[in-house]
């Protein structure tokens, strides 16, 4: 099962309040920091000017940062780089915010700016715009990070010639938990795109 035709070109892990890129520490803040404060600190450290970032929900922000950091290692991405993401709670952060908006006792009022993020694939739209990816996107909802599914799925896409590269992984972001593990799969690079290897990288 460990034979592989494709490689992990680079990867990013955002776990709790720590960010690592290819195993190297990028940012580490106190574990008690609020999610959005942590993500804002990470954005500032990127030193880019992208005002759209501030409109995003927490899920999109975390994914945006991870994909930006991966691009610095193995980008720019080819235009056809496919996006195959997964998580457990879909867009729960935005869902609960929208629910608060509309069931707020005194002034129930839905906000389009919140509602649009109540779909998990919006984050894939955000990074498609940022990196100009005209590609296939699919957002799976699983119990946990499932390389046993994602590795053969990504391999099949590459073998079928659907795409020359894939950004794939696990993107679970809630108020209490931030667990984002994204990686760039392509033809070159030293790390094998295998279930076993990805399990090790995900352990951190």
């Amino acid at each position: 099962m460990d034979k592989h035709r494709h490689s992990i070109q680079s990867y990013c892990l955002i776990r709790d309040r720590t960010i690592t890129v290819n195993g190297q520490r990028y940012l580490d803040v106190e574990p008690t920091a609020a999610l959005l404060d942590f993500l804002k600190t990470a954005y500032r450290q990127l030193d880019i000017d992208y005002p759209k970032f501030h409109k995003m929900d927490g899920l999109s922000k975390a994914i945006f940062i991870a994909v930006e950091l991966i691009a610095r290692e193995s980008g720019p991405y080819n235009d056809d780089t496919a996006l195959v993401f997964s998580n457990y709670s879909s867009s729960y952060l935005a869902d609960s915010r929208h629910a608060m908006d509309i069931f707020n006792g005194t002034h129930p009022m839905a906000s389009p700016a919140t509602f649009v993020y109540t779909l998990p694939n919006i984050a894939m739209g955000e990074i498609s715009i940022r990196h100009q990816l005209h590609s296939e996107n699919v957002f799976f909802i699983f119990d946990s990070y499932l390389p046993e599914f994602l590795v053969p799925y990504g391999t099949a896409m590459l073998d079928d010639g659907k795409t020359s590269g894939i950004l794939s992984g696990w993107t679970e972001v809630t108020d209490t938990r931030c667990d984002v593990f994204l990686y760039h799969i392509g033809k070159t690079g030293g790390m094998p795109h295998t279930i076993e290897h990805l399990k090790r990288l995900y352990q951190g």
Binding site: L83, I129, H134
Partner: peptide
């Protein structure tokens, strides 16, 4: 075939 517009989220 399935492709993103890479243009606007909504």
């Amino acid at each position: 075939g399935s492709y993103n517009d890479a243009n606007h989220i909504s």
